[in-house]
C-alpha cells in the first residue's frame, strides 16, 4: 500500500442539504490509524474538515466514526486492519450530525444521566465523609467491573438496530450502566433504576442483536449486561432475588501521614 483513498463525509449546516462524500488521496505510513489519516487531511489537504478527537489512545471515546460501515474509534483502528486502501469515513449513525464527522452525543449523555450513573449510598454521611473503606470480594468486583470500562463513545448506540428505529429507546450504553451500578454492592439505587429501565422505551425493547457488544471498542459487552439486567428485574418483580446484604466497612488501623502544608502563593 503506497496510497490511501479516504472518502470522508462532508456536511456543513446551512450550506449543504444532505451529507456527501469527498475523496482524498493521502500517503500510507506504517502503523497509521484512521485518525492519523483524518489528521493528515486536516493539516495538509483541507483544513475545513471537522472531526472530534482527543486522547488518540482509545480512552476518551471522542473519535467514534463509521469506518467502512462499521462503528469504530478512529484512533483505535489501524488502517492495515481494514485490509483495503479505500476507507470510507462517516459520522456515527443514529446521532444527529453537527458538521462533517462530528455527531451530537447529547441524547446519549441525557439518557446516561437519567439512569443515575453513580453510587447511591444508604448512608449519605459515610458517602460524603468516609471513615473507612468498603469491603468488596473479587467475585463482587468481577460481577460489574467489565461494564465499568465504558468510555461513553456511543458506538454501541450507533450499532443498535432498536436505537435506529426508536429514538426514545434508552439504548445499550445507559442500560448496561443500569446493571453496572445495580450490581455494585455499595449501591442501594436498584429500585430507582429498575423503574427507569422498566419503561415502554426501556430494557424490554432490546431484542438481542448483539451488535452493541460487537462494536464496543473496550470489551464492555453491553448486550450481556442488558440480559443480566432483565434477569435481575424479572427476579426482583417475582420476589425471587437474593436479599442483598448491606456493604461492610473495614476500619483499617492505618495511621495517615501528616498533611503537607500548602506553600504560600508566590504571586499575590
Amino acid at each position: 500500500m503506497q496510497e490511501l483513498t479516504f472518502k470522508v463525509q462532508r456536511y456543513t449546516p446551512g450550506q449543504d442539504k444532505e451529507p456527501y462524500l469527498q475523496e482524498f488521496t493521502i500517503p500510507f505510513t506504517e502503523g497509521m490509524t484512521v485518525l492519523d489519516g483524518l489528521i493528515y487531511i486536516k493539516e495538509k489537504v483541507d483544513n475545513t474538515l471537522s472531526f472530534r478527537s482527543s486522547c488518540r489512545m482509545g480512552i476518551c471515546g471522542s473519535c467514534g466514526v463509521l469506518v467502512n460501515n462499521f462503528p469504530m474509534l478512529a484512533c483505535h483502528t489501524p488502517v492495515e486492519e481494514l485490509k483495503t486502501d479505500r476507507i470510507e469515513v462517516k459520522s456515527l449513525p443514529n446521532f444527529p450530525i453537527i458538521r462533517d464527522l462530528v455527531a451530537s452525543l447529547d441524547l446519549l449523555f441525557e439518557k446516561h444521566k437519567s439512569i443515575k450513573p453513580y453510587i447511591i449510598s444508604s448512608d449519605i454521611r459515610e458517602a460524603e465523609e468516609p471513615t473507612a473503606e468498603y469491603v468488596q470480594s473479587r467475585e463482587e468486583l468481577e460481577s460489574y467491573v467489565q461494564f465499568a470500562y465504558c468510555v461513553k463513545c456511543g458506538l454501541c448506540m450507533a450499532a443498535c438496530p432498536t436505537v435506529a428505529t426508536d429514538a426514545l429507546f434508552l439504548g445499550p450504553q445507559p442500560l448496561g450502566q443500569v446493571y453496572r451500578y445495580c450490581t455494585d454492592r455499595r449501591d442501594m439505587g436498584a429500585k430507582e433504576r429498575f423503574h427507569e429501565a422498566d419503561s415502554p422505551h426501556g430494557v424490554w425493547l432490546c431484542h438481542l442483536a448483539g451488535a452493541c457488544s460487537e462494536a464496543c471498542p473496550k470489551g464492555v459487552d453491553p448486550a450481556l449486561a442488558i440480559q443480566l439486567l432483565k434477569r435481575a428485574m424479572v427476579f426482583d418483580s417475582m420476589r425471587l432475588a437474593k436479599k442483598r446484604q448491606p456493604v461492610t466497612l473495614a476500619h483499617l488501623p492505618v495511621e495517615s501521614k501528616p498533611k503537607i502544608e500548602v506553600p504560600e502563593f508566590t504571586v499575590k
Binding site: 456536511y11 449546516p13 446551512g14 451529507p19 459520522s91 456515527l92 449513525p93 443514529n94 446521532f95 444527529p96 450530525i97 453537527i98 455527531a103 451530537s104 438496530p161 432498536t162 436505537v163 435506529a164 428505529t165 429514538a167 442483536a209
Partner: peptide, 13 residues
C-alpha cells in the same frame, strides 16, 4: 442551526 437527523430507521434493523 438544527443538527441533521441521522437515524437509520427501518434500514437500520
Amino acid at each position: 442551526k438544527p443538527h441533521l437527523p441521522n437515524r437509520l430507521g427501518v434500514k437500520g434493523w
